[in-house]
Amino acid sequence: MSVGAVVSLGVIGVVLGIALAVAARKLAVEVDPREAEINEVLPGANCGACGHPGCSGYAAAVVAGTAGVDKCPVGGNTVAARIAEIMGLDVKGISSIRKIAKVRCQGDKDACPDRFEYDGVADCRAAVLVGGGHKACEYGCLGLGTCAAACPFDAIHMSEQGLPVIDPEKCLSCGKCVEACPRGLIELLDEDIAVFVACCSTAKGAEVRRTCKLGCIGCGICAKNCPADAIEVTDFLARIDQSKCTRCGICAEKCPTNCIVVDDRYVRIVDQDTQGIAAASE
């Protein structure tokens, strides 16, 4: 009796064992080794900023050819270059400048007062639906810190005057704040740009003057004075073409409302008589 049981169980064991071995061969999932390699070089933040479900999802998409190598904003160009290497692609053309988030508004409590008292949900996306927002400027920062709450890297803090301040050291340009701002005031810009227009108002100059001390009134003085012809004013708003900008900083100096923000580290001082670059401050 017991012998029969041992034999029959033994036979079942052997048959199932063979079946499993065959199935493992036949149904094996082929994993591209590059996927694991890419996953290795990704930051592992799983922030989703690339639009894929986490880092491994992005790695799979790159290998499958459905995503580009430069779609990880956190890793930036360094990671992009390494992914390109793994994929056997040309690494030239990927610049080594990282991007960081910059706030294109200076309308804090002093510069741009409230039109009315807002007493609702402390979220800019809710506030913007109440009477079009409580700020005098209908394009400006509402100051409730939705961008700061959205930042996964603690890189955004609200100033006492009610404007977001971005810590360039902590910002990994994931773009979460860009997505969160209902007024679209945050932009991912190259870290080393010398100047940018910190205003998004396309209202007429008189309207901007009425609502904000630091807004772009579309006067065009910056465009007229730009030696590189890099500035254009459309819809009463100055727009700087960073690819043409020579970092002279003249536009910011001439701007009557101080709405062009300068990063001194990247400005080259210009001798205005000769229009030539006299020295670099770097």
Binding site: V121, R125, A126, L129
Partner: peptide
Amino acid sequence: RRIVQSIRQGKNE
């Protein structure tokens, strides 16, 4: 709680 306001925000989003 500002429930209606949050609901409006949600619908809008």
